[in-house]
């Protein structure tokens, strides 16, 4: 009778697994062996090198060239009969030195994009951080009931898809949309939210504020938990009223968190793309709300001026990185 025998093909899988496990464990024998660390790291580092490190360097490289078409030129080629490999250039480029960067100084559309972005930023960031701070302080007040419910509701927009929520604003801000209806209802004139240059920027401001206030409120609320209660008690003994407590205890104590919120919001505004594309692609005069990222997108993928777009990207990356570095430095006590 046939007995279950280890040489039977049914067990060959198990044998091969055992074989490979043994051979592998000879490759990674002990914790002291640094190969284990490398093996854990390998997949992430490989992807990081190809899809993040390479693009970071290559964007800089591209910014000194004029793009003339996708590549295909063979850079390196080896054929040993059974093994062949061909390294192909990924773009056909012409060296132009710094002229891409120089061109920015005379590019009026770029100036317009920069102006729009900075304008939106200067209005939107203080407005949103202010509202978020007020919500956080209000929700933190000891007498407020249903705190959890309110927090959930206010934080709800965090989960809204950026493009989907933009369409909501595109529709609400129509001339006969919801917002104008409310305005006329309370006796005000309707506002051309999508067709006037100024108001179309304000529409973006409103949309971004709606989407991100709850997000920042959560961060500020967490920051408030770390403010020592004794400080408030001491201020009370000194006869401080609510406003004074807010001014002299809450704000100074929250300074690092507020700074963080300011800087991340500023960075977020520099990266603004979905909202202007959706909201103003559908309405406003294009150039009054075009943002930097939108301009980069158009330059790169509609005009196919990839070299110039890379230079623009690097300027933007430079600005954003400086801001982030400043954020880490200014807010950094928690550096471990």
């Amino acid at each position: 009778m046939a007995t279950q025998d280890s040489t039977r093909p049914a067990n060959s899988l198990r044998d091969s697994v055992r074989f490979w496990r043994q051979s592998l464990s000879s490759v990674l024998p002990s914790a002291s062996d640094s190969t284990v660390g490398y093996l854990f790291l390998l997949p992430a580092i490989a992807l990081f090198a190809v899809f993040l490190a390479f693009p970071i360097v290559y964007t800089l490289y591209l910014s000194f060239f004029r793009f003339q078409g996708v590549g295909g030129e063979t850079l390196f080629w080896i054929d040993t009969g059974f093994f062949s490999y061909r390294l192909v250039s990924i773009a056909n480029l012409q060296f132009v030195g710094l002229s891409n960067y120089a061109a920015m100084f005379t590019d009026s559309l770029f100036h317009q994009a920069l102006f729009n972005t900075v304008f939106i930023l200067l209005v939107q960031v203080p407005l949103m951080v202010g509202i978020a701070l007020l919500f956080a302080v209000a929700l933190d007040a000891s007498f407020v009931k249903f705190r959890g419910v309110f927090r959930t509701v206010l934080a709800l927009p965090v989960s809204a898809n950026l493009v989907a929520y933009s369409t909501v604003f595109l529709l609400m801000m129509q001339d006969s949309g919801l917002v104008n209806y409310v305005l006329t209802g309370i006796g005000l004139d309707p506002i051309p939210w999508l067709t006037s240059e100024f108001w179309s920027r304000m529409t973006i401001v409103g949309a971004v504020t709606w989407r991100w206030t709850g997000y920042n409120m959560i961060i500020l609320l967490a920051g408030l938990q770390n403010v020592p209660q004794q400080l408030y008690e001491a201020a009370e003994i000194d006869g401080a009223n609510r406003i004074e407590k807010f001014r002299y205890v809450t704000v100074p104590q929250l300074r690092p968190v507020l700074l963080f919120v300011f800087v991340t919001s500023t960075i977020g505004t520099f990266k603004l793309f979905s909202e202007p594309v959706i909201i103003n692609g559908g309405g406003a005069p294009l150039e009054s709300t075009i943002t930097i990222v939108q301009y980069i997108y158009q330059t790169a993928f509609i005009d196919f001026r990839l070299g110039y777009a890379s230079a623009l990207t690097y300027v933007l990356i430079g600005v954003v990185s400086l801001l982030s570095a400043a954020q880490l430095r200014l807010g950094g006590e928690g550096d471990a």
């Binding site: 899809f51 970071i56 996708v70 590549g71 990924i90 790169a300 777009a309 990207t313 954003v320």
Partner: peptide, 17 residues
């Protein structure tokens, strides 16, 4: 600190290749 969503130009070329 880099806005990694913005590295689209080289990624586009890389993906075509």
């Amino acid at each position: 600190i880099l806005p990694i969503q913005l590295l689209v130009i080289p990624l586009f070329l890389l993906m075509s290749q």
